[in-house]
Amino acid sequence: MDANTLTGLVKELNTANTDGKTEEVVRILKKLKTEVEPSEDLLRSSKAGVAIGKLRSSSTSSISSLAKEIVKSWRDVIEENKKKRKRDDGDSGSSKKEESGAKRVKAEGSSTAASPSAPSPIPSTSVSTPDLKNESTSKKSPSADSPRQPLSTIDPSRTTPRTAKSDGVDKSLRADSSDGAADPVRDKCVVMIYDALAGDSTAQNKILTERAVGIEKYAHKALNYSTGNDYRGKIRSLYLNLKDKGNPALRNEIVLGYISTEKVANMSKDEMASESVRALNEKIASDNLFKAKAVGETQAETDAFKCGRCQQRKCTYYQMQTRSADEPMTTFVTCTNCGNRWKFS
């Protein structure tokens, strides 16, 4: 069933429910249960999840039980689709990580060989003679295969957070002034970013300084070289997300250089969020498909108003601030019997 057809059925369902046509409501619900293949986009665009979610509290048992069954089955399908996408993304992501990890290992090996301090290679003549003693010694020492283990700069056992002050660099930390004059506000922001990255890190002061200065530089650039409220809000958001104890993977990837400082400065709070926060946001979004109210004014049913046309007291109303804040709200009333509408303040 496409979105337009489903939207039409939802409108019919709402109308039948408003008119108290129980049999019609049950018929439409059964049709939705058997013919709809739910997806987040489909339910959001048609507002079907919201409409049926409201019917779970219906006073008619046949309607409420059927609505509960539909909501449960739709939620299960959506959750299963999410898990499937995660598995697919995980499989493709793991292969990419293995490939990039191999490249990093190769790069590290080549840089070590090119280093002036690296020991000279063993002559080929000495390799031809097996030496059991040297072989056993080499097995005990760190092997060339050690980079295959996950690289981490995070020390989870650390109880006292590292800071720029404890590292003795708080006085010397300065923002990159190549794009303008020195600014004490920017210098303090660099210290904040350093503290966020250094809390449980084992990285050298030099690396942490480079990352903090780089992140602040690109954040300053992204906000048109201003240190106003937008800039300070961005730095505060970066600080809180980078410092989050549940987000060590992000700090580790930044310190190791897997994520560039420019990308970090332009990441949104959702992109920086930890896995637990993302999972919570997904759960909330899924629940809102059935719990959130439809787009538009929130209306309540009441018998406090009498329709001037049909003299009935079956009305819905909502209130809206149409004038200045010190004026009372305007009440909009609709008669559910004849459709007459009026307003008053």
Rank of each mutant, 00 (worst) to 15 (best):
L9S: 03
V10Y: 03
T18R: 12
T18F: 04
T18N: 12
G20P: 02
K21M: 08
V26G: 00
I28S: 03
L29H: 02
L29E: 05
A48Q: 04
A51V: 09
A51R: 04
L55E: 04
R56T: 15
S57V: 12
S58Q: 07
S61D: 10
S65Q: 06
S73D: 14
D91V: 14
S95Y: 10
K97E: 12
S100I: 12
A107I: 03
T112M: 10
S115A: 09
S126M: 14
T137E: 14
S138I: 14
S138L: 14
K139W: 12
R148D: 01
L151Y: 02
S152P: 01
S152E: 01
S152N: 02
T153P: 00
T153L: 05
R162V: 05
A164F: 08
K171W: 10
K171N: 15
S178D: 11
A181D: 09
V190L: 07
V191E: 13
M192V: 08
Y194W: 05
L197M: 06
L197C: 05
D200C: 00
D200L: 04
L208W: 03
T209P: 02
A212P: 00
K221G: 03
N229C: 00
D230F: 01
I235N: 01
Y239Q: 11
L240M: 07
N247Y: 11
P248K: 12
A249D: 15
V255K: 08
L256A: 12
I259T: 15
S260D: 13
N266C: 09
S268T: 15
E275T: 04
V277E: 11
L289I: 07
A292T: 09
A294M: 15
E297I: 02
T298A: 08
T302N: 02
Y317I: 14
Q319M: 13
T322N: 13
R323W: 06
R323M: 13
P328C: 05
F332E: 05
C338I: 11
F344Y: 12
